[in-house]
Design a protein around this nucleic acid. Structure first.
Lengths: 349, 349
DNA sequence: CTGAAAGCGCTTACAG
DNA sequence: CTGAAAGCGCTTACAG
């Protein structure tokens, strides 16, 4: 029911009314070549009067490029990615790029389909937190001249830039913090080791435990709430007095399990989460976390992308950001808690 | 540094190798007309062999349309919108539409710019939670044949469909719930009355208070954390025993203020929030809320959009969804709290 | 500084 | 069912 399918003007009409060629109108519009002032003013006036809006589809085809960047994440509802998307949108908007949102649900098939869309649409670039690091479409994108930045997790194609967090270091810091608080039975609520962040964080935890000559104890969830709850329950049953939780969603599960077990935090159980969700300060007690500087990382990713698009850089860049400890109330208040009478193995996985 | 700028095949090459016309290849690709099986199989084989990917930019220009819908929200970091975007993405993806994310920051100028982008890109449709309900670009979009669905808040153009929550009713229910729990000093942490949801929710609260012959007491924040904290502090200083908080971000602020005042929830202060953020169950006690069925609403919006795009509907639709009470622990446990000795005016704003 | 002309790579009436 | 041809509305070498 478009009632008044308002006259769509084309560049030709503008040109005619201004008594110039379409080329000149295009130059005024895009600033791609100088146009003498009186002529320019006249063109601008006509554009204004007609409410002319260039048809971007035509420009896209002609230029074989669209001022758009694809942002490929596994779950937009995870605040970590939400913040990233938000920061990327901010940066991209200022540079004149739009954001095409691609939610993959950690599903390699969906990721490949979306990458196919990005190729078919000839996006200028993509920021990808890959579910499948080796998807051939990533190389295809780069072949087509798109700039690609891997975020959070690396991609196989070595031509892509990357922005990642120092995951092993972050987990190590968290673990050391608990150990220095006097804990010996520090468990790790881990993620899937098939996912890079999962593997690296677990490695950092094990490193810290080994350095302190303590027996590591890992139970793995799936980086989601339920898995975190199960893994936490398991570690609690083994007598852990402190836990490092490998991501924010599993921290929600850990809190549930702890509440269910009626343990008091931090006195009966100390808790540190990796990642710093917005609700960390709302729990009781507020959750101590190791935060990635997500905004800075997203800004860096956008900057890498735009830098390459503008041809300012040819060398590959790989930027690593450190976690920061955000001290809240969920660990290390006062002396270490008494160990409950449950066997904590000298070693184990 | 595209090292091997891989041969990009065009439909012409595919046609030549298959010994057919480009038109036939197009028909096979899009299923727009029947193609005899042997020919079709041959074309498919060539496409496969070449790794041919149709250049969507050309198709977009030719069709004067792009299989994309713009999602315009004021803040992608607000879980309410995050959930909406996520659900829209799900629905749209299944129908073959992509999501262009437009974050307006509640800034009318940014909204207008983004709407301009949607017009210039000739998106098939848009789901808009307007910051400026009367932006002329909305009408322009519709003039151009795009389907527009207003989400959360209405738009001025009466040709747009709409999906909204029964905001007044929700606030009324929340207020009645507290009143039925024995509370008389029920305050309202309100949003800006210039925003539709702010005004409607406040109206619902006032209605319930008037029906119970109780004096309303409103302090307004800005729908953000800090404003909620300030408004809550103000109402607490006036001796409120129960609060209805008009949105999820202000609920965070309210919790901060309550903690700061060292009041125990729900015994010394009962609290109900409108909107149901993911962290509602993490606070201590968990927050009782009135939840919008966001997913259902988003699915409805996507469905309205697609239905119109597919020409299945011409009549305008306006769908209203009810809030649901999610009982948790932040109100109405046991008898109403004693009123603190502070004057609560018989009437006031 | 400016214009005439070609062309981006598809899709789709039209004709058969 | 299939093909030849036009055309979507811009941009950009090219020539002047």
């Amino acid at each position: 029911m478009p009632t008044k399918p308002r006259q769509q003007f084309r560049i030709r009409e503008v040109a005619e009314r201004a008594g110039v060629s379409p080329a000149t109108v295009s130059r005024v519009l895009n600033g791609t070549a100088p146009v003498r002032k009186p002529k320019r003013d006249l063109v601008l006036a006509v554009i204004n009067e007609l409410g002319y809006r260039p048809n971007r589809l035509a420009a896209n085809l002609r230029r074989q490029q669209v001022q758009m960047i694809g942002v490929v994440v596994s779950d937009i509802e995870n605040p970590h990615f939400t913040q990233m998307v938000r920061a990327v949108e901010d940066s991209a908007y200022l540079k004149g790029f739009r954001v095409l949102l691609c939610n993959t649900d950690e599903d390699p098939a969906k990721q490949r389909e979306y990458l196919g869309v990005l190729i078919a649409e000839r996006v200028a670039g993509a920021i990808i937190s890959p579910t499948e690091a080796s998807a051939p479409e990533i190389g295809e994108l780069i072949d087509n001249g798109a700039a690609v930045v891997a975020f959070d997790r690396a991609v196989s194609d070595k031509r892509a830039d990357a922005v990642v967090a120092a995951n092993a270091e972050g987990a190590r810091l968290a673990t050391e913090h608990l150990i220095s608080g006097g804990h010996k039975r520090v468990g790790f609520v881990g993620g899937p080791t098939g996912i890079e962040t999962g593997a690296r964080r677990e490695a950092g935890y094990r490193e810290a435990m080994a350095a302190a000559k303590l027996a590591p104890r890992v139970a793995r969830g799936d980086f989601r709430v339920e898995g975190g709850e199960r893994a936490t329950t398991e570690l609690l049953s083994q007598g852990a007095t402190a836990l490092v939780v490998a991501n924010n969603l599993m921290a929600v599960g850990a809190l549930r399990a702890v509440r269910h077990a009626r343990l008091q935090v931090p006195h009966e159980l100390a808790l540190i989460g990796l990642d710093d969700p917005p609700w960390a300060e709302l729990t009781d007690p507020p959750l101590t976390t190791l935060a990635q500087p997500v905004r800075a990382m997203a800004a860096a990713a956008a900057e890498l992308l735009v830098g390459r698009l503008e041809g300012r850089r040819r060398r590959r860049r790989h930027e690593v950001f450190s976690f920061e400890l955000r001290h809240r109330g969920s660990c290390c208040a006062g002396p270490p808690p008494p160990e409950r009478r449950i066997a904590w193995p000298k070693s184990g996985s």
